[in-house]
């Protein structure tokens, strides 16, 4: 299977007046296959958002190249096809909405790519349904909650039927309820075959993906399936990242000499291990 996103030795820095601006990304090599659910974690300034913007041609690499379904992002004639392939949901829900009603905002992308008006109705309806905004079609955006606005932003992206959707810290400005709905939508989109890339600084959210990439100071430090990552998770502290609570507990209990297995693959397994130890007679 051909990877849908390929980063080939990508280096990036912003063009500024300074003589030698620092590299924001250093020699990134990365392949993402269709249908994957990948999280990219890192602190502010680790280069993770820049990475996202390179993946749909909003930024172009300084050195190396980024390929989307075999198209190079620096190609002017392919760029619109690339943007249709890779959709992007941003951080601030407020600043992504263009139109003065929910359905008109969803229509915006369709209008941009020249979909015939009669075909739009159906697509808009499906997008509204996919994010659970039924009944809000005629609402003005400012009457929506933060979580609802972010769902609208997602609807505006999925209506273009992209293969890949990048969530660039899209949960970070929401309350717990809003965050939970967005995470659920991500999972359901992935189940329906979309490639999901979730950029976040929350380890807990990152562990919901199947694969996790750690960015630190512009470099890719770790790229591993989350199931296999559990025993290495304490290393996340090296890059100033949080460690999921259950792993911290597992680590502490092991240090106290509990006979816990070397490997756990998820929270459920840890809970049943604890239960097994406590109830063994």
């Amino acid at each position: 299977m051909e990877p849908i996103i390929q980063f080939e030795h990508v280096w990036f820095r912003y063009q500024v007046d300074e003589p030698d601006p620092p590299w924001v990304l250093k020699d990134i090599r990365l392949n993402i296959d269709p249908g994957e659910y990948v999280s990219i974690v890192g602190n502010n300034g680790s280069g993770k958002s820049t990475l996202a913007r390179l993946a749909n041609g909003l930024l172009l690499p300084t050195k190396g190249r980024v390929m989307i379904s075999g198209m190079e992002t620096s190609s002017e004639q392919d760029i619109w096809q690339i943007r249709r392939t890779v959709g992007m949901v941003f951080q601030n829900p407020e600043n992504q909405i263009v139109a003065t009603s929910v359905e008109d905002d969803i229509a915006f992308g369709l209008e941009n790519i020249g979909v015939p008006p009669l075909q739009m109705e159906e697509k808009i309806k499906n997008a509204v349904k996919a994010v659970g905004l039924e009944g809000f079609e005629h609402h003005e955006p400012h009457t929506l909650s933060g979580g609802q606005k972010q769902r609208l932003a997602i609807a505006g992206v999925i209506v273009l039927e992209p293969d890949v959707i990048i969530f660039d810290e899209s949960t970070s400005m929401l309350d717990p309820v809003g965050r939970k709905t967005i995470l659920e939508i991500m999972q359901s989109l992935n189940r329906r075959g979309k490639t999901i890339i979730h950029i976040t600084h929350s380890a807990e959210e990152a562990f919901m993906a199947d694969r996790m990439i750690v960015m630190h100071q512009g470099e890719c430090k770790l790229d591993e399936a989350t199931g296999r990552l559990y025993q290495e998770a304490m290393r996340l502290k090296e890059w100033e990242l949080d460690v999921p609570l259950e792993i911290e507990l597992w680590d502490r209990l092991r240090q106290k000499g509990w006979p816990l297995p070397d490997k756990i693959i998820n929270k459920e397994e840890l809970v049943s291990e604890i239960w097994r130890l406590l109830s063994r007679t």
Partner: peptide, 10 residues
């Protein structure tokens, strides 16, 4: 932000 989001939406 809005300009970027609009560009990303083609």
């Amino acid at each position: 932000d809005l300009a970027l989001a609009m560009e990303a939406r083609c």
